[in-house]
Every structure is written in structure tokens, then in C-alpha cells.
Amino acid sequence: MSLWAGREDPEPDSLRWHQVVTPYKRDSEPGVVLVGFGCDAGVARNQGRVGAAEGPRSLRRALAPLAWHRRAPVFDAGDINCHGNDDMEAAQVRLAERLATLLANSQLPVALGGGHEMAYASWSGLTRHLEARGERCPKIGIVNLDAHFDLRDPSQMRSSGTPFAQIAAECEARGWPFRYACLGVSRANNTRALFDRARKLGVLIKEDREFLPHRFEAIQRELERFMARCDHLYLTVDLDVLPSSEAPGVSAPAARGVELAMIETLVETVRDSGKLRLADFAELNPSFDNDGRTARAAARLIHQLTLDS
């Protein structure tokens, strides 16, 4: 909680996030609950730039001074930390358990990363919650704003590049539909094998080069059609979807990317669907975040995601 600090304005009705965020308790009223995932073991396994384990702290600092415009509360449930590369799978289980508990208590969890290996934990937490409610074949839609599919073969090693392949395999084993939209993907940074796998899995694919002003409304409509076929939505934002000029502090900076204004609109589209159950923000690497630009961009997205007025 010491990270929640900042200026205080004398005018009435001038609160900022750091003045209203409180520690989460079991009997807390429904609201948004932030959970950190201090882990970049998956990034290390994926041969990326490590440092994302410090992402949750940087994100809290960036959120702290933002103006407060919510009616419902926001809580901080602390961090799930990974202790070395061999602890990744156990850390994913711990995060999944925490998220399932929060969902059972009618909260909207927002996980702060951390490497994108957190996606498997987020999905697992949601499925645990839905199964506990008796849903045998839930229609879960995954909306991933990302430069990468993260559909690599996990049979040799699980990493930040494999979470959605792991999820697809679990859906197949359970007889569940795999509904996955990957928006902002870079053809230059995904092999032909990954594009082929995505097509075979029926992934909604939108490449970064498609995000042009005159085509953006069509992309929104496709996303809306995708969401209409789902009962529950899980939103995951890998910050490397943004251009490196807007988000230098990530594990794999994008040469092109999708500008923040468009990503923000997509986040709001998912928020306004009424089906969002949880969200996470991955790959913030403070070690490379010049002037905190990436943390501020992520904080802006979280601010917009959680607006209720």
C-alpha cells in the first residue's frame, strides 16, 4: 500500500486513485480488485527481456496520481510472486486460485503483470469460478490485444509464448469451444506455423497493419460479433501491442504496433459489452521504460477499463 501515494488537491471532489484504493478484505463490497503477478519466468523461458516481475509496482505508481472518476470502489489484493523460473507453474496456480476467490465474491479482478504467462492463470481462475457455479460448457471469449499469438507448442516448455495453446488444449480436452480473438498481431513477429495454427483453431485475427482509420469501425464490428457469441469475456492486454514509441518498456518492443487511441477504444468496447469477467495487463518491463511511458499508457487503459460513470 506504500506505493499508493501522491499529490492531494485542496478543491472539493478532487480525489485521485491513491486516496481511495484500500486493501482488499473478504467482506469488501463489490468493486474492482487489483492483483499483481510478480513473475517473468515465462519471459526468461521464451528468451525475452526479463524485468516484467517489477511491472506490478510500476503500474501502481502510474495509477496512483490519476484522477478518480468512479463510484464503485477499487481494492488492492497484493501480489502473487514467482520465486525463480522453476516456480512459474506454481505461481500460476496461486494466481488462478486468488482470481477464482475474487470472482466468487462478485469482484472484477484486474491482474497486473508480469509476463504473459499470466494469461493461462487468468483463464484458469475464471474457469474454476464458472465450474464451481455449475457451468458445464461455458462460452468464454478471450480478447487478446497483442502483437503475438502466444500459441507456441507447450510440449517442450511452457512460457510466456504458450498460454493460449495451453488453453486451446484444455478446451479440446473438456469439449469446450475455444473462442479466441487476437487483435494487433504482427506478421513479422509470428511464424507461418503460428498463423496456420491460429487459422486451424478458428482464431479471429486482426493484424497491426489493418488498424487504419478508415478500417477501424469494421474491426470494432467484428469484435462485437465475436463477443455476441460468448457468455463471458476475458480481456488480456499485452503492452507490446503498442508502438515502441508509446511503449518502450516491454519484453518485446513493437516496430509498428497499434496506437494507444485505438487500443483504448477496443478496451472500452469490451468493457461496455456487459460480459467482462476479468482482465489483465502483461509484459510491462520497468527496466526499459523510458520516462515511464509504458506504465502511464497501461495506467490510462486500466483507468478507462474501470470507469463506471
Score class of each variant (00 low, 15 high):
residue 95 L to V: 10
residue 120 Y to A: 11
residue 128 R to A: 07
residue 193 A to P: 01
residue 174 R to T: 01
residue 103 L to E: 08
residue 175 G to T: 09
residue 191 T to G: 15
residue 82 C to W: 11
residue 92 Q to H: 12
residue 97 E to L: 12
residue 159 S to E: 03
residue 180 Y to V: 07
residue 112 L to Y: 07
residue 86 D to K: 13
residue 83 H to S: 13
residue 159 S to C: 03
residue 172 E to R: 14
residue 165 A to C: 06
residue 86 D to W: 12
residue 118 M to A: 12
residue 130 L to Q: 02
residue 159 S to F: 02
residue 175 G to R: 09
residue 145 L to S: 03
residue 126 L to F: 01
residue 186 S to P: 04
residue 153 D to W: 01
residue 115 G to T: 05
residue 93 V to H: 13
residue 173 A to F: 03
residue 125 G to N: 05
residue 137 C to W: 00
residue 78 G to N: 10
residue 120 Y to D: 04
residue 124 S to A: 13
residue 88 M to I: 01
residue 129 H to Q: 00
residue 99 L to T: 13
residue 91 A to N: 13
residue 141 G to Y: 02
residue 138 P to E: 00
residue 130 L to Y: 04
residue 86 D to Q: 15
residue 153 D to R: 01
residue 132 A to R: 10
residue 80 I to K: 13
residue 107 Q to R: 05
residue 125 G to D: 05
residue 109 P to N: 07
residue 157 M to C: 05
residue 122 S to N: 13
residue 134 G to E: 03
residue 189 N to S: 14
residue 113 G to Y: 06
residue 71 R to S: 15
residue 107 Q to M: 15
residue 68 W to A: 09
residue 160 S to P: 04
residue 177 P to I: 07
residue 158 R to L: 00
residue 169 A to F: 00
residue 183 L to V: 06
residue 78 G to P: 11
residue 100 A to T: 09
residue 75 F to Q: 08
residue 109 P to Q: 07
residue 148 H to A: 05
residue 161 G to F: 05
residue 193 A to Y: 08
residue 193 A to I: 08
residue 73 P to H: 13
residue 154 P to S: 07
residue 109 P to I: 07
residue 136 R to N: 02
residue 111 A to E: 00
residue 134 G to S: 04
residue 67 A to V: 14
residue 172 E to G: 04
residue 190 N to S: 11
residue 158 R to A: 08
residue 116 H to V: 05
residue 90 A to P: 03
residue 86 D to P: 01
residue 191 T to K: 08
residue 150 D to V: 03
residue 115 G to N: 06
residue 112 L to E: 09
residue 87 D to F: 10
residue 165 A to H: 10
residue 125 G to I: 08
residue 107 Q to D: 06
residue 181 A to Y: 09
residue 182 C to W: 04
residue 133 R to M: 10
residue 186 S to K: 05
residue 166 Q to C: 12
residue 113 G to R: 03
residue 162 T to M: 04
residue 86 D to C: 08
residue 127 T to A: 06
residue 74 V to C: 15
residue 132 A to W: 00
residue 152 R to A: 02
residue 102 L to R: 09
